[in-house]
Design a protein around this nucleic acid. Structure first.
Lengths: 103, 103
DNA sequence: AAGACTAGTTTATGTGACAAACTTGTTTGA
DNA sequence: TCAAACAAGTTTGTCACATAAACTAGTCTT
């Protein structure tokens, strides 16, 4: 194997589909800069329906990309969300990957 | 409306989902540089199954992004594909859109 | 105390990606 | 020469997923 062959080609195959879905990409973009967000904040920012947002958050959590913390605030349920380090890394990797492909 | 408000925000909502799907993004990337490609070439380049490739090409054609030209070559069916201007424009718009979102 | 509101979750449905199976014809080899 | 293998796709069946509607559980208002 010579040096030319070791150049890794930016590959569409290894796009992270969990992040690639626009609804979740949007969520990740907000969480990446905000660090801490609650359900209602994301609801308004993303424009997703509640059911939709709920399911996408669960999927991101199932992949270890974020943490969902439930508490009661003024006697009402309150859902806080933040990216895990894994989620943060996955997002930067996704970004690098796509920039490589498109540039 | 003042000038600040006219700054268009790069929005996840208007990602072109036809192109966004990785399999089709891959196809578009090849067609964008090659200009003319046949079915078998794309089959090998993309690594998609034949059925999959067939369906994705039909979907891109249905959206006016490419033209499918069928002919017989050495008595065998031969499918040529090329981007339309519309497809070319859609691709550059998609690229711009995603670069804006990710940068 | 009945209706409206808040903050979500569960479900039902439709769409879509994918590969397996099929189709139509051509070439090969026994 | 005819049957098996090959070529180039298409159609079909299945499974996953995105989405909104319906539901839940509790709180506030009047």
């Amino acid at each position: 194997m010579n040096s030319e062959e070791t150049i890794t080609k930016a590959s569409v195959e290894d796009i992270d589909r969990i992040i690639h879905e626009p609804a979740r990409l949007n969520i990740m973009l907000y969480l990446y800069v905000v660090e801490n967000a609650d359900f209602v904040y994301l609801l308004h920012k993303t424009g997703l329906s509640k059911g939709n947002l709920s399911v996408h958050l669960q999927k991101l959590e199932a992949n270890g990309y974020l943490e969902i913390m439930k508490e009661f605030l003024n006697r009402k349920p309150h859902t806080m969300v933040r990216l895990t380090q894994r989620g943060r890394d996955a997002f930067t990797a996704y970004r690098e990957s796509l920039l490589n492909i498109l540039q």
